[in-house]
């Protein structure tokens, strides 16, 4: 390895200063971009943000329009998404880390998960349209199978069509690989000695997982879960494939209700040429960012409060 002894010291020191300057410039640029983003959105959107905006439905006139339907839609879809993706993600992580033998099959599943995390989200939308929207053509949407009554929140019919249930399950597929990887990292961080101690006391494998490994990994897992959920709440492309952009005048009341979400509403308003609609798009973005900030703060608080240092 040559460390440049043939280069005069003055030039080497100049390289040194240039490097620091370049690094500082790049970092400043990153901060400047974030500031420009936040400032330009606040300037455009702040004046449209009031209670009327939060509590009204969409409208042909920008001045009367509100985000009640997409806001409630986002909450419904994200709740369903979390209730599916978090348990399935954690279960997969437990199986891969605690149960599966180190075989070819296991590394194939692992490779598959990391590949899935790179699949564009719009492709998940196409899968969801075929699977949830149409049940792969096995059941006609003109003659759906129904479970329960339409008055109940848990009313379900197959195929799901463009319902909140289909939306939530779609997002669950999108974030599942991220959730699995986060949960696996949390499990790997638990020292082996804890598991060995529990096994030495006569615990069964599941007792070790349920009473020892999972509780110690939970704070890290929850941080990962919240970060995956913040990805889900900002996704628009896969939902656009299954449902298109709807201007709705109702909030979801059961699993089969139509829905729209905040990012789709933002897309719809931002795509129009009038400045009025750009202003309310910016206002909706502020609401979206506040939601995200809330999510992230919860993650940070969990990380700081619950994380007991574990000796290895």
């Amino acid at each position: 390895m040559t460390i440049g002894h043939t280069i005069p010291i003055a030039r080497r020191l100049r390289h040194d200063r240039l490097m620091l300057a370049a690094c500082l410039a790049a970092t400043t640029l990153a901060i400047a971009v974030l500031s420009a983003l936040l400032i330009s959105i606040f300037v455009q959107g702040f004046s449209s943000l009031d209670w009327h905006f939060l509590s009204s439905f969409a409208s042909r006139k920008a001045a009367n329009a509100g985000i009640l339907a997409p806001l409630m839609g986002s909450l419904w879809v994200c709740t369903i998404c979390g209730m599916v993706a978090i348990p399935v993600g954690i279960a997969t992580a437990i199986y891969l880390e605690e149960y599966a033998r180190r075989s070819r099959l296991r590394s194939l599943i692992q490779l598959n998960i990391s590949n899935l995390s790179g699949v564009p989200s719009i492709v998940y939308g196409i899968l969801a349209l075929a699977a949830f929207g149409r049940c792969f053509g096995a059941i006609s949407s003109d003659d759906p199978w129904t479970l329960g009554s339409p008055d109940s929140v848990f009313f379900v019919q197959f195929p799901f069509g463009r319902s909140v249930l289909a939306g939530g399950l779609t997002l669950a597929l999108v974030i599942l690989p991220i959730m699995i990887i986060a949960a696996q990292e949390a499990l790997r961080a638990v020292p082996v000695s804890l598991r060995q101690a529990a096994l030495a006391l006569g615990s069964t494998k599941w007792q070790v997982v349920w009473k020892v490994t999972l509780p110690s990994a939970l704070p890290t897992m929850m941080t990962g879960a919240i970060l995956s959920m913040s990805r889900a709440i900002g996704e628009a492309a896969p939902l656009l494939v299954i449902g298109g952009v709807l201007l709705l005048f109702s909030v979801p009341d059961n699993l089969m209700s139509d829905f729209t979400v905040l990012p789709l509403q933002i897309y719809n308003w931002a795509g129009r040429p009038q400045d009025d609609f750009h202003r309310i798009a910016a206002a909706a973005i502020i609401v979206q960012l506040v939601l995200l900030l809330g999510f992230n703060s919860v993650a940070i608080v969990i990380r700081q409060k619950l994380q007991r240092p574990l000796q290895s």
Binding site: A30, I31, V33, L34, A36, L37, S40, I41, Q44, L227, S230, R231, I233, G234, E235, A236, P263, I266, Y267, A270, H278, A281, A282, I285, Q288, L289, L292, L293, F295, N296
Partner: peptide, 20 residues
């Protein structure tokens, strides 16, 4: 700062490109 940038929904960046 980077975590905030990572969490911003992509539709917001689209809006930023179009209006800024």
């Amino acid at each position: 700062v980077l975590e905030i940038l990572a969490g911003v929904p992509t539709v917001v960046y689209g809006f930023f490109a179009l209006t800024f």
